[in-house]
Design a protein around this nucleic acid. Structure first.
Lengths: 256, 256
DNA sequence: CGATTCGTTGAATGATCTCAAAATTAGTGG
DNA sequence: CCACTAATTTTGAGATCATTCAACGAATCG
């Protein structure tokens, strides 16, 4: 992971755009966020930014690229806990612990903006409303974990795969990284299996079946969902959990 | 759910004790929390406090008793997302959404302290450090979800059960609700199965096996772990995820 | 072009589920 | 406190979803 000394001119713009997708900012907050002391870094495919068991007390805003957060078990199996996309914060809540609970590594070449956790905490004193929005976003992401637990705990393999793909489609659309029924992302079948608690071989069979049924095509790192409606029914996919209310819905005063 | 008009004299004390277990308070914060406008309610066994799909914008601090948070699927199956114990906040992040994402109901007769979410958000303006601690706790609880995902996604049935029981033991000990190797809690095998993505019948077989091996006894709503060490190895149980650093470790000033 | 990584498929196995029924325990109204 | 009902535990037999292992082909990377 290397510091980008000549940050491309768009870096600050991209940063504000990305954070705005997760944490909607007021005009006054823009300069605060921009000049927050982010350390912008390029990350190569497969490179870890956090490693389980090591100290890490920074959080990472993903500007570009995709990451997986995962744990390697005793027997070498891997469980992927989350697939992180641009606008997501990586390192939450891992950096809140003495040593990182999971590893996080890039699925593609990527760019992140790193900031020490204590700087974020400092916002509570200097810009409490901004701190509120950030921690609101942190808390809402728990809903995604919970949904994954439901999917992995109680759904059959083909439902899990369908749900997984639809969630990604839904999350990527507002980022401009997916159109109505497709997105680009190097999703190996191993990654899908490790995210869903399935074996690689079985994921392959399930995808084969979804392909034969004309529902999904995955080719050249592009996922095309050929029948979103039918797949949605198959997966029993409800997207409410991806749409928290904004904190402003509960803010006591105007102007949040 | 009925308001307790004659709150027992210990109610405020209990409340402060419980919240302190999750959100460590400074002496100055005690009166703020005490006079926060909690609505203290008694809840009967099996009674829901939040129902999936209905509006709810309050959060509930559990003062006494145990709750389950769960989703009922299309086909009637149930996945339990969390078992909530005294000191936990129920309704997070469910109340952050337009309609509740899950249902929450009591496993035992219980007492909760209810407060509208907008009051909590108001803390960011009036007592930002207190707000920080509360949302810190919210965020840390995501680590428990993630751990459950790992367990359910990649562990065999007997490991899941072992892990589940050890997590409960570990969480209940600091509350004074468990001793070194046992705790009381009406854990039906159906609840265990629904929490771990297993069928009732299979949970029974697994428990039988753990009992025959002299590891666990569940009888009369009491769980006794006869060999904590061996069960810990069996479950590959690491308790780090239950022990976040306090926010004060990152606070920029003293006195948090 | 050599080396990884990734995808595909078959056969055999097994962990876990479903269904069903009985035994036990807990809860409730009279 | 009894009598009844509901909830929970227990167990068997059979079915199946998903895994493991192994091998090979295809694609990608440097």
């Amino acid at each position: 992971m290397e510091t980008v000394t000549d940050a491309p001119p768009s870096a600050a713009t991209l940063l504000l755009r990305r954070i705005n997708q997760t944490v909607p900012l007021t005009p006054e907050e823009l300069p605060v966020v921009r000049d927050f002391g982010w350390d912008i870094r390029a990350v190569r495919r497969r490179q870890p930014i956090i490693t389980e068991g090591t100290k890490n007390h920074s959080i990472f805003l993903i500007l570009d690229g995709f990451f997986i957060r995962y744990r390697i078990l005793r027997d070498g199996q891997r469980q992927i806990i989350a697939l992180a996309v641009p606008g997501d914060f990586a390192g939450v809540p891992s950096s809140f612990f003495h040593d990182a609970l999971y590893s996080i590594r890039a699925l593609t070449d990527a760019t992140v903006a790193m900031v020490p956790l204590d700087r974020v905490i400092g916002l509570f004193e200097t810009h409490p409303r901004l701190a509120a929005k950030v921690f609101w976003a942190f808390t809402c992401s728990a809903a995604i974990y919970a949904e994954h637990l439901i999917v992995v705990g109680r759904r059959a393999a083909h439902e899990r795969v369908a749900h997984f793909l639809l969630e990604l489609l839904t999350r990527l659309k507002p980022l401009g990284l997916a159109d109505e029924n497709s997105f680009e992302l190097p999703l190996s079948q191993e990654v899908i299996g490790d995210a869903l608690g399935l074996s690689l071989a079985y994921v392959n069979r399930v995808l084969r079946r979804l392909f034969d049924d004309g529902l999904v095509v995955i080719k050249d790192q592009k996922v095309v969902i050929r029948d979103v409606e039918e797949l949605t029914v198959l997966a029993d996919f409800e997207q409410n959990y991806l749409q928290p209310l904004p904190i402003s819905a509960f803010a006591p005063a105007a102007g949040w």
